[in-house]
């Protein structure tokens, strides 16, 4: 179990993290979302020892992450970085060795990972000669080459074309199947929704929502009902008790029901206006959940 526990961090008067905590089980893919500047990168850098938390700690298997544990973590920093003038294969071997592999296995792993990420023919080329997309693959290979026990990836999908995204996603899922906990941050929420077993939403230095996507949906404020009644007059639902109209456009109505409101009464009211062509609970997308979580509770901001 990889645990982030009560992380606090301030840069001067800027409180970046105010008690960030979540945990990732082995084999779980954890999507880390948040607006720009919410503190995702700082959280990951603390885990990698590149920033020091003012309070709180990161644990792996119950013990605080130290230098030795970190060598078993594959890391991809937000600011990509490798030696521009070093050959790809050599570079991968070097990072495998820094993570504790012996010379022979490190060289073999470098060849294997270059091949698996489609860099086989580029192995003898200097990194700077490669296209940006290929450099990104090398960066990923550098994180994976030592067969790490944990993966922490900061925006691994940014700058990849759709094919690249699929291939990276496949590689990460495979690591999960191996039993590796994977944490990655992303702005591409559709991707997070598709890939992740669990999601954490970071806002104002805290995790404002976390859990599986269905859990988040269940916890999401007020479920929404979409009713399409083409012949209904405008404002047909405005007077219904316990119902708030979210939007209405030519009979296509989205309603939010207060707790305890009977959806069958709504259906009856709808039928009274004429034919009903659509009547269904609407699953909020992660984007909507995110928006809700990030903008909700302004009282918390004041606190």
């Amino acid at each position: 179990m990889l645990e982030f526990d009560g992380l606090h961090k301030a840069y001067g008067s800027n409180q970046v993290l105010q008690g960030v905590g979540f945990s990732v089980a082995p084999g779980q893919m954890f999507g880390f979302c948040g607006s720009n500047g919410a503190g995702k990168t700082t959280t990951m850098r603390i885990a990698m020892g590149l920033a020091r938390a003012d309070a709180g700690e990161v644990r792996w298997d119950g013990r605080p992450v130290d230098e030795e544990v970190r060598r078993r973590i594959g890391y991809m920093p937000e600011e990509r970085g490798l030696y521009p003038k070093m050959e790809v294969g050599e570079q991968l071997t070097y990072f495998a060795r820094l993570h504790g592999m012996a010379a022979g296995p490190a060289a073999r792993a470098a060849v294997e990972w270059a091949d698996r990420l489609g860099l086989g023919e580029r192995r003898a080329e200097r990194l700077e000669k490669l296209s940006l997309g290929n450099q990104q693959r090398v960066q990923l290979a550098a994180a994976l080459v030592s067969e790490p026990d944990v993966l922490i990836l900061d925006e691994p999908f940014s700058g990849l074309d759709p094919v690249g995204v699929d291939s990276l996603a496949e590689a990460l899922l495979e690591q999960c199947r191996r039993g590796v906990p994977v944490v990655f941050s992303s702005h591409q929420l559709d991707l997070v929704e598709r890939l992740c077993d669990a999601v954490g939403i970071l806002a104002r230095g805290r995790i404002v929502a976390s859990g599986t996507v269905p859990e988040l949906r269940a916890a999401g404020a007020g479920r929404q009902l979409r009713v399409v009644v083409p012949q209904a007059p405008h404002g047909w639902a405005a007077e219904l008790p316990g119902v708030r109209v979210v939007s209405e456009q030519r009979g296509d109505t989205v309603l939010e029901l207060l707790p305890g409101t009977d959806d069958q009464q709504v259906l009856a009211a709808a039928l009274a206006t004429g034919p009903v062509t659509h009547f269904a609970w609407r699953e909020p997308t992660l984007v909507e959940l995110f928006r809700g979580a990030v903008t909700a509770t302004p009282a918390e901001v004041a606190a």
Binding site: P26, G27, D61, R72, H99, G100, M101, A102, G104, P105, A106, E112, R116, L117, G118, S146, E147, D149, S167, E170, A171, E174, R177, R178, G179, V180
Partner: peptide, 20 residues
């Protein structure tokens, strides 16, 4: 390139990689 499953991939969590 599609990513293939490595034949040697360990299936259990936290298995120690050989040579590490």
């Amino acid at each position: 390139a599609p990513v293939q499953t490595p034949s040697s991939a360990p299936t259990t969590a936290r298995s120690v990689t050989p040579g590490t």
